[in-house]
């Protein structure tokens, strides 16, 4: 009996995608209920593992951001103790360099999100609705953007930006990040706008709306899911960026969170794990909220075939 059960387990497990190829032969003549129970057990076990590995680091970050410096140095503990508990670590967000880094990160992220959405919306509209030659060439050109490597491009950009005065400028970073978010966003808008019937716009033109008015009143409201999805991806890109910022924002005043805090650590300034964990929490909470409330848009973004 036990060997039979094992056979079922491997069969159900391969549905879970663990790579082991089950032989379906062992399944013949077995009641569907046993099969189903094992399958569900593996399913919930998988979910539990994801939750554990997904949440544990966040939990660890959260609980250590609530400990005093001394409590952390006391060694590993699973909860903040009563005397080791403090909220004062979060003061790091509103003071000194960290505050500056956060501000810069916010500016760069918002700038990238806005620029990405505007540029990709317009380009996507043009590709979906206007007929002009070389569209196929443009599609290739667009996808080539996936090959943009921050390290390969950042190196030459360093001297170019220096020459034209964009080094240490948030605008320079926003431009760079917008460019590498283009292939995804433009493709998404393009494919999404194609799903909106042309009659929608034409019915607006018939009643006298100009192309711009039709775009504003009919296309933009209906493209909202794609706008949210592409904004989300631009956010992920800008919020995550380290390499471009490290190279293109060398000065401390201009830099964003990632290179900034790393500099603080490597240069051995007066910064401790409790502060770092508090700052990390601040970088983690927006993604957590977005992942919960906007997950359908995230999926929708990837559903448009071919990126």
């Amino acid at each position: 009996m036990s060997s039979e059960t094992a056979g079922t387990a491997s069969t159900a497990g391969s549905e879970g995608g663990d790579g082991s190829t089950g032989d379906s032969g062992g399944l013949l003549g077995r009641g569907f209920e046993t099969d189903d129970r094992v399958y569900r057990a593996l399913l919930y076990a998988s979910a539990a593992i994801f939750l554990l590995f997904g949440l544990f680091p966040v939990y660890w970050m959260a609980q250590n951001s609530l400990k005093t410096r001394e409590a952390i140095l006391d060694g590993v503990s699973w909860f903040p103790s009563a005397e080791g508990f403090t909220l004062s670590n979060y003061a790091v967000l509103t003071s000194g360099d960290i505050q500056l880094y956060f501000f810069n990160t916010l500016v760069v992220t918002m700038g990238t999100v806005i620029l990405t959405v505007v540029v990709s919306l317009i380009a996507g509209y043009g590709l979906a609705r206007l007929s002009f030659p070389y569209k196929e060439g443009f599609a290739r050109f667009l996808l080539f953007g996936y090959m943009f490597s921050p390290i390969v491009l950042g190196l030459p950009l360093y001297l170019i930006w220096q020459e034209i005065g964009l080094l240490n400028s948030r605008v320079g970073l926003i431009i760079a990040l917008t460019a590498i978010s283009m292939p995804f966003s433009v493709w998404l808008m393009w494919k999404y706008i194609q799903t909106i019937p042309e009659a929608m716009e034409e019915s607006a033109w018939v009643v006298g709306a100009s192309r711009w008015e039709g775009f504003r009143d009919v296309i933009i409201p209906q493209t909202q899911p794609a706008i949210i999805a592409s904004a989300l991806f631009a956010f992920a890109l800008a919020w995550n960026d380290f390499t471009f910022a490290q190279i293109l924002l060398p000065s401390n005043e201009a830099t964003t969170f990632a290179p900034g805090i790393l500099r603080q650590i490597t240069q051995g300034y007066d910064i401790a794990w409790n502060d770092i964990m508090a700052a990390s929490m601040a970088m983690t909470i927006p993604p957590l909220l977005f992942a919960y409330f906007l997950q359908s848009y995230l999926l929708q973004g990837f559903q448009i075939r071919s990126l």
Binding site: A199, M200, E202, S203, D217, V218, P221, Q222
Partner: peptide, 8 residues
Amino acid sequence: FQDIALYP
């Protein structure tokens, strides 16, 4: 129009 094209 055939596809009625009311704005959702």
